[in-house]
């Protein structure tokens, strides 16, 4: 994969004192701060309803937030959303796609929005569709795809424009083992080349083996953040997580 841009160990994503409240009284995220550096795979873990998806949506610019600041590659998501979104790719959990167009039409659409040249997009689509086993299905309507195929197509679309920051919400749910392995390899390759990956997951053993850094969120607040060894200490990530969830319950 061709890489470019600023790929040193600087912070590519900086979240400072992020707060978001729904409906006037339900505080989904409270005073959350964390950094993701270039070259890092950063796991974001927490219970259901802890505030992970809210945080990710705020980072990507899908949702406004009440307090704090989010900067991506030095640009504010609030004031310069287009500059921020140019360098990131986002895949939600259960990614719904456009059922009324074919796979290749979707990829063309994504590449057009991100300004990917024809030569680059053909090379990347060819390679990525082979890796994820979708090369024979690109001509079919997305409406005929299974859930796993849609997920793979969303991943191909996200990687086709060579993002600096990949933001994923539960990326491994619904993927077959081969595609899960391919995605993990791809994430590692990207980060070795200077990109960053920030993803939420409930699969703690994958996070433990794959990630460099981890942040744990509980009831909208960050309860732990740092290197993997630092957060888990002498125990496993699962034990450390359960202990954090139990504290002050």
């Amino acid at each position: 994969m061709t890489m470019g841009g600023n790929r040193n160990n600087e912070s590519i994503l900086s979240i400072e004192n992020l707060s978001k409240t729904y409906g006037g009284d339900k505080k989904a995220v409270s005073n959350l701060s964390l950094n993701v550096r270039s070259g890092e795979i950063h796991a974001f873990i927490g219970r259901n309803g802890a505030g992970k998806t809210t945080t990710l949506r705020a980072v990507v610019g899908l949702m406004d937030f009440d307090e704090g600041e989010i900067t991506i590659d030095g640009h504010s998501i609030r004031n310069e959303p287009v500059q921020c979104k140019k360098v990131l790719a986002y895949i939600p959990d259960n990614p719904d796609l456009y059922d009324y167009i074919s796979g290749i039409q979707y990829l063309d659409f994504v590449c057009d929005i991100y300004g990917v040249s024809e030569t680059d997009r053909r090379e990347r689509i060819d390679r990525l569709s082979s890796v994820f086993g979708l090369q024979d299905d690109l001509g079919n309507l997305i409406g005929s795809y299974s859930h796993g195929m849609k997920q793979k197509l969303a991943i191909i679309g996200a990687l086709s424009h060579d993002p600096k920051l990949l933001i994923l919400d539960e990326p491994f749910v619904g993927l077959d083992p081969e595609s899960t392995h391919s995605l993990k390899m791809m994430m590692r390759e990207m980060c070795d080349s200077g990109c960053a990956v920030f993803f939420s997951t409930h699969v703690l053993d994958v996070a433990e083996r794959l990630c460099d850094t981890v942040s744990v969120i509980k009831s909208g607040r960050l309860v732990a953040s740092g290197g993997m060894d630092e957060v888990r200490g002498d125990s496993t990530l699962e034990d450390a997580f359960l202990e954090l969830m139990a504290d002050g319950q």
């Binding site: 074919s102 796979g103 290749i104 990829l107 063309d108 659409f109 590449c111 057009d112 929005i113 300004g115 990917v116 040249s117 024809e118 997009r121 053909r122 090379e123 689509i125 060819d126 569709s129 090369q135 024979d136 690109l138 001509g139 079919n140 309507l141 005929s144």
Partner: peptide, 20 residues
């Protein structure tokens, strides 16, 4: 017959607004 093969070679660049 609505299913059809397509390859990366069919990818075509268009302008952003036109693509939207």
């Amino acid at each position: 017959s609505t299913a059809r093969k397509a390859s990366a070679a069919e990818a075509r660049a268009s302008g952003r607004l036109f693509s939207l």
